[in-house]
């Protein structure tokens, strides 16, 4: 023991230059990573958002044209608001479904627990598009859900509204988010020692009270993070609404995409993207703060 400690001490003291070199290399790598994957893409969006178009060409002069277009035309605000409501709804439902699941799993013995976690994460092994196509097959007029409903006599005609409308988009987005919501909630619940819950019961708290006063507040950070994951996913996704959505009620992702086809208006697309980013950042900060405050035991 003693030798290893001295060795360690001499090593760290002995070659300060080597350490500095390693640190420099590590920091350099980190910096490079940040520049390539964060600074450059965001910088490009930021720059584009403040450029403008002249015919088919992007003019690289500072301009607020794109933002005034967005403000002047109510359709962008409307779509943005709808996307926001949609994402909040998906996040709430995903948390509401994932929480009981995470709670039940976290109270199992560790052997069973780990197997159950793998089961919950299983959908992640399947491609994202595959899951969307699966929903098309399940929810279509001739799909399994409609066949079962008709066989049960619940309905005589296939229900068209299941697919290609808000319902199918919600179902798919919730299903896609559940593993991401489950994991942080599960981790926060798993960390609560059984002893604390038992103590509260010993001190006379009802099961309900011990849940609302002990378990729920302690798992709040997990809920907040899970909520944020689901919200970001639902707010930015455009593939799911495009493939499963109906004829009305497009979301902001689709509007952004359409600025890059025949319209070829990258500045407007970038400006919309920037607004989406801003809304997301604000929502994330608010939700995470709420979660952190709740986590403090009263």
């Amino acid at each position: 023991m003693k030798t290893t400690e001295t060795e360690r001490a001499t090593r760290s003291q002995g070659s300060p230059r080597g350490d500095a070199g390693v640190r420099l290399a590590l920091n350099g790598t980190l910096l490079l990573w940040l520049v390539v994957f964060v600074v450059l893409p965001l910088g490009s969006v930021l720059a584009n958002a403040f450029w403008t178009m002249d015919g088919a060409f992007v003019v690289k002069d500072l301009s607020l044209t794109s933002f005034s277009t967005i403000l002047e035309n109510p359709v962008y605000g409307k779509v943005l608001l709808r996307t926001l409501v949609n994402a909040l709804l998906v996040a709430f439902v995903a948390v509401a479904l994932a929480y009981p699941l995470a709670y039940l799993v976290s109270r199992e013995s560790s052997r069973i627990r780990n197997r159950l976690v793998v089961l919950v994460l299983l959908p992640l092994w399947m491609g994202y598009l595959m899951r969307i196509f699966a929903w098309q097959i399940l929810l279509g007029r001739q799909g399994i859900v409609n066949s079962v409903l008709m066989w049960l006599g619940v309905t005589n005609e296939p229900i068209g509204g299941l697919l290609y409308g808000p319902v199918s988009v919600w179902i798919a987005l919730v299903q896609i988010s559940i593993p991401f919501v489950f994991v942080p909630i599960y981790l926060s619940l798993e960390r609560i020692p059984d002893g604390i819950i038992e103590s509260s019961r010993d001190l006379g708290a009802s099961p309900r009270k011990s849940f609302t006063r002990i378990v729920l507040p302690l798992s709040a950070p997990g809920i907040a993070i899970g909520f944020v994951f689901a919200f970001i996913q639902a707010f930015g996704d455009y593939v799911t609404p495009t493939l499963l959505g109906g004829s009305r009620g497009i979301l902001i992702g689709r509007v952004i995409v359409s600025q890059f086809g025949i319209a070829y208006n990258p500045p407007l697309g970038a400006a919309l993207g920037l607004i989406v980013l801003a809304v997301t950042v604000v929502s994330v900060v608010v939700v995470l703060r709420l979660g952190a405050r709740e986590a403090v035991l009263e």
């Binding site: 035309n73 359709v75 004829s247 497009i250 359409s258 319209a263």
Partner: peptide, 16 residues
């Protein structure tokens, strides 16, 4: 005016 066409399309698809 391609931009105007996209604009109209966005409005149609946005629905009410």
């Amino acid at each position: 005016d391609p931009e105007r066409r996209v604009q109209i399309w966005t409005e149609v698809r946005a629905g009410s």
